[in-house]
Simulated scan of single mutants.
Amino acid sequence: MNNIAIVDYGMGNFHSVARALRAAAPDANIEICNTPQGIDRADRVVFPGQGAMPDCMRTLDRSGLRDAVLRAARAKPLLGVCVGEQMLFSESEEGNVRCLDIFPGRVKRFAGPQYASEAGDAGRELLKIPHMGWNRVRQTRAHPLWSGIPDGTHFYFVHSYYAQPDDPEITVGVSHYGMRFTCAVAAANIFAVQFHPEKSAGHGLRLYRNFVDWNP
């Protein structure tokens, strides 16, 4: 049995992620975990997050799950989702807080209302912050979690901040919202995305299924 822990530290759409995972992988044992022991015994870990970064980091520390997440990041397949992706980086402009520092880099805020500039965007549409809705994801290099997902697939985003890695080699997906930004990163046993697979219909479920089958 493939045992998958969804980290429940109080700041994430854990039940939506669990429903999507169960639909994508009915053969797996999906558990929403709020104890270090539950995360430690899992075969793989999903680390979601939503809300303001200072609140997420504070709540993670208060939950007692920070060290368990760090252990998982060193030892087993880990999937970061939305703010869960951002928390893997060194620091965030949102509240100027230190994050988990697994990936060197900084989480930055979109500069503000900008005009669409990507080829194919309609005219000079004013882009609002937060960025919310479906956006195309370009795969910058192959990865097992992209299996069966066409390059240029649309995924669902809700965010005002994006991760900027120090090492561009960990970027595996980019999107465009007034500017090109990293929306998926991967290294060793970690894959993390800014968008919400659980809100992204069939291709989002495919990404979760690929994670369940991934053996880095």
Results as ranks from 00 to 15, higher is better:
Val7Phe: 08
Val7Gln: 13
Asp8Glu: 15
Asp8Ile: 06
Gly10Asp: 05
Gly10Val: 01
Gly10Thr: 06
Gly12Ala: 14
Phe14His: 10
His15Lys: 10
Ser16His: 15
Val17Gln: 10
Ala18Thr: 07
Ala23Ile: 14
Pro26Leu: 12
Pro26Glu: 06
Pro26Asn: 07
Asp27Cys: 03
Thr35Phe: 07
Thr35Gly: 06
Pro36Met: 07
Gln37Tyr: 03
Gly38Gln: 10
Asp43Cys: 02
Arg44Ile: 06
Val45His: 08
Val46Ile: 06
Phe47Ser: 09
Pro48Lys: 02
Gly49Glu: 15
Gly49Cys: 12
Asp55Arg: 01
Met57Asn: 08
Met57Ser: 10
Ser63Pro: 11
Leu65Asn: 04
Lys76Leu: 09
Val83Thr: 11
Leu88His: 09
Leu88Asp: 04
Phe89Tyr: 01
Phe89Trp: 01
Ser90Pro: 02
Glu91Gln: 04
Ser92Tyr: 07
Glu93His: 11
Glu93Lys: 14
Glu93Gly: 15
Glu94Lys: 05
Val97Thr: 13
Val97His: 05
Arg98His: 04
Ile102Met: 08
Gly105Asp: 06
Gly105Ser: 09
Val107Thr: 09
Arg109Asp: 14
Ala111Ser: 13
Gln114Val: 12
Tyr115Asn: 14
Ala116Asn: 11
Ser117Gly: 01
Ser117Tyr: 05
Glu118Met: 02
Asp121Phe: 04
Gly123Asn: 07
Gly123Arg: 11
Leu126Asn: 09
Lys128Met: 06
Ile129His: 08
Pro130Gly: 07
Gly133Cys: 10
Asn135Cys: 05
Arg138Ser: 00
Thr140Cys: 05
Ala142Asn: 10
Pro144Trp: 10
Pro144Arg: 12
Pro144His: 14
Leu145Ala: 12
Trp146Asp: 00
Ser147Asp: 14
Gly148Cys: 03
Pro150Thr: 02
Asp151Tyr: 04
His154Met: 13
His154Cys: 06
His159Ser: 03
Ser160Ile: 13
Glu169Cys: 09
Glu169Ser: 15
Ile170Ser: 02
Thr171Gln: 00
Thr171His: 00
Met179Asp: 03
Cys183Ala: 01
Ala188His: 07
Asn189Asp: 15
Phe191Lys: 03
Gln194His: 02
His196Gln: 13
His196Ser: 15
Glu198Asn: 09
Glu198Ala: 07
Ser200Met: 14
Arg209Val: 01
Val212Asp: 11
Trp214Arg: 13
Asn215Ile: 07
Asn215Ser: 13
Asn215His: 13
